[in-house]
Amino acid sequence: MLELRLVQGSLLKKVLEAMKDLVTDANFDCSATGFSLQAMDSSHVALVALLLRSEGFEHYRCDRNITMGMNLNNVSKLLKCAGNDDIITIKADDGGDTVTFMFENPKQDKISDFEMKLMDLDSEHLGIPDAEYHAIVRMPSLEFSRICKDLSSIGDTVVISVTKEGIKFSTRGDIGNANIVCRQNTTVDKPEEATVIQMNEAVSLTFALRYLNSFTKATSLSETVTISLSSELPLVAEYKIADMGYIKFYLAPKIED
């Protein structure tokens, strides 16, 4: 028996919006730790890892580990039927082939439930080792989103370089080229407005902007994004989900052929 009650239902709505364009079908794993997901996009260039810890739910009952395969577009459609202030409860029976999403409005005078068929998906769970990154940059998520959007009007790929000067985003296209540098800036009114650069070693990597733009769909989940870069590893863009966990996007670089 699985029963997860999330008071801030809007979080789940936002999580689905952040993932549904990148990943079509995915297995949600439910255990005592929490509600999680790991999935790659169809071309295996990007990977998303989600964790909503059990402590973040008002009620969390998961008698045994359950894997539930779902089409994210369909889940997103169902969650669009929930109001932003609704409480969302996810229910499933052990060994069952359906999941139920229940929505309660704040006045508790409207209760909806939607039952959805689960899918049997081949899960290809990848082991992601802990790594020391050459550079870790925390910046306002809205700023990162703006940069990715602006640069994609000029080019298809971006070179992200971190030096002592700051983090530089460069692109080139038919009309010319563009560089945006964000310097470390900690003299801000609110900590979430800061740009903080931790650099062990200078790093420069090339990425497809299309994927980075897709990751920025998570912007509404967190005011800051943490970008981790290492020359031998995929980029990680992490959006923390307040009091609950995170959504992390991994993106494999483009390398010299």
């Binding site: 990977l47 990848l126 995929p234 991994y250 494999a252």
Partner: peptide
């Protein structure tokens, strides 16, 4: 020309 790498060349199943 740059080649797009895949996630699976960095992380392996397990």
């Amino acid at each position: 020309v740059r080649k797009q790498c895949q996630i699976t060349s960095f992380f392996s199943p397990g």
